[in-house]
Simulated assay, not measured.
Amino acid sequence: MTVHSQGAVTAPQDAPPKSAGGQQTPPTTKGAGTSAPRRGRKPLPAGWLPYLLIGPAVLSLATLLLYPLAKNVILSFQKVDKIEFIQRKAPFNGVENYTQLLGDAHFWTVVLRTFTFTAANVALIMLIGSLVGILLNRLGTWMRLVLSMALVMAWAMPIVASVTVFQWLFDEQFGVMNWVMRTLGFSGYEQHNWFETGLSTLTIVTVLVVWGSVPFVALNMYAGLTTVSGELYEAARMDGANGWQTFWQVVFPNLKPFFTVTTFLEVIWVFKAFTQVYAMNRGGPDRASETLPVFAFVEGQSQGHYALAAAISVLTIVMLVIVMSFYFRLILKQEEEQ
Rank of each mutant, 00 (worst) to 15 (best):
G103A: 11
G175M: 11
T10G: 01
Q78P: 03
P26M: 12
V122E: 13
V270G: 00
V318W: 09
A279W: 13
Q276N: 14
L202P: 02
L265K: 01
A36H: 01
D14N: 04
K89P: 08
E299V: 03
G31Y: 13
A90I: 09
L208F: 12
T260K: 03
T316F: 08
L112R: 10
W244M: 15
T197E: 14
F174P: 01
P45M: 04
Q78N: 04
A20E: 09
T197H: 14
F85I: 01
V270D: 04
R182V: 11
T2I: 07
A273N: 15
F170L: 14
G240L: 09
D171H: 15
T183G: 15
F186L: 11
T63W: 05
L292R: 05
V122H: 01
L139R: 00
G212Q: 14
F117L: 02
Q301G: 01
L44R: 08
P68M: 10
W248H: 13
V205L: 03
R138P: 07
S60C: 08
T164Q: 07
T206M: 13
V152Q: 03
T164R: 07
P91H: 13
G94R: 06
V58G: 03
I74E: 12
H106S: 15
V294M: 04
W248Y: 15
E196D: 10
D239P: 06
P253I: 06
E172P: 09
I74H: 08
Y278D: 05
G21D: 14
S35K: 12
T316G: 05
V228T: 02
L292N: 06
E231N: 11
P17S: 08
I159Q: 15
L147R: 00
F186K: 14
S213E: 13
Q100F: 10
W142T: 12
Y327F: 15
G133Y: 01
L184H: 12
V9L: 11
T116R: 10
I125C: 06
W211K: 02
I74P: 04
T197S: 15
L127H: 07
N242H: 10
S19N: 15
G243W: 13
F216T: 12
T263V: 03
G283L: 07
K333H: 15
I134H: 06
I134W: 06
M126S: 05
E196Y: 14
L49Y: 04
F271I: 02
Q167P: 04
T10K: 03
L124P: 08
G304D: 02
M280E: 01
Q303G: 14
Y189A: 13
P37A: 07
Q276V: 13
R237N: 11
R282I: 05
A156L: 11
L147E: 02
K30W: 10
L184R: 12
V73G: 02
K333C: 07
H4G: 04
F271H: 00
A309I: 09
S35Q: 12
I317N: 10
V214E: 01
V3T: 08
N193D: 15
L61E: 07
W194Y: 08
L112K: 07
A46L: 10
S5V: 10
I159L: 14
L136M: 06
P68D: 07
A223C: 03
F117V: 01
V294E: 03
G188N: 04
M149D: 04
K82R: 09
S325P: 02
